[in-house]
Simulated scan of single mutants.
Amino acid sequence: MKNFLKNFLTEDEQKILIFIIFLAVLGLALKFIGIEQENDSLSADSLNFEKDFEIKYDLNSATKEELISIPGIGEKKAGDIISYRENSGFEAKEDLMKVKGIGKATFKKIESYFYEFGRVSNPLEKVESIKEGTVTEDKELPEIKKVNINTADLEEFTILKGIGPKKAERIIEYRKEIGEFTDINQLLEVKGIGEKTLEKIKEMITLGEE
Rank of each mutant, 00 (worst) to 15 (best):
N3R: 12
F4N: 11
L5Y: 13
L5D: 06
L5K: 07
L9F: 15
D12E: 15
E13Q: 14
I16E: 13
L17K: 03
I18K: 12
L23E: 10
L23V: 10
L26P: 00
G27N: 06
G27S: 10
A29Y: 09
A29M: 08
A29E: 06
L30Q: 04
F32A: 14
Q37F: 05
E38K: 13
D40Q: 14
L42N: 13
S46P: 00
L47V: 06
K51I: 05
E54C: 03
I55K: 05
I55H: 00
K56E: 04
T63L: 10
T63A: 11
E65T: 08
I70E: 09
I70G: 09
G74F: 13
E75T: 14
A78E: 06
D80N: 15
I82R: 09
S83E: 15
S83N: 15
E94T: 14
K98E: 13
K100E: 15
G101I: 15
K104P: 00
A105D: 14
E111F: 03
E111I: 04
F114T: 06
E116W: 04
E116M: 11
F117W: 09
S121C: 02
L124N: 01
E128V: 12
I130G: 10
V135C: 02
T136E: 15
E137S: 11
E140M: 08
L141H: 04
L141F: 07
P142H: 13
E143T: 10
V147L: 04
I149N: 06
N150F: 08
N150T: 09
T151G: 02
T151I: 04
D153Y: 03
T158H: 02
L160C: 05
K166S: 12
A168L: 06
A168H: 06
E169V: 05
E169G: 09
R170S: 06
R175W: 01
K176H: 06
E180P: 00
D183A: 14
D183K: 15
I184E: 03
L187N: 01
K191Y: 06
K191C: 02
G192L: 07
I193K: 03
I193D: 01
K200F: 01
I205Q: 08
G208L: 04
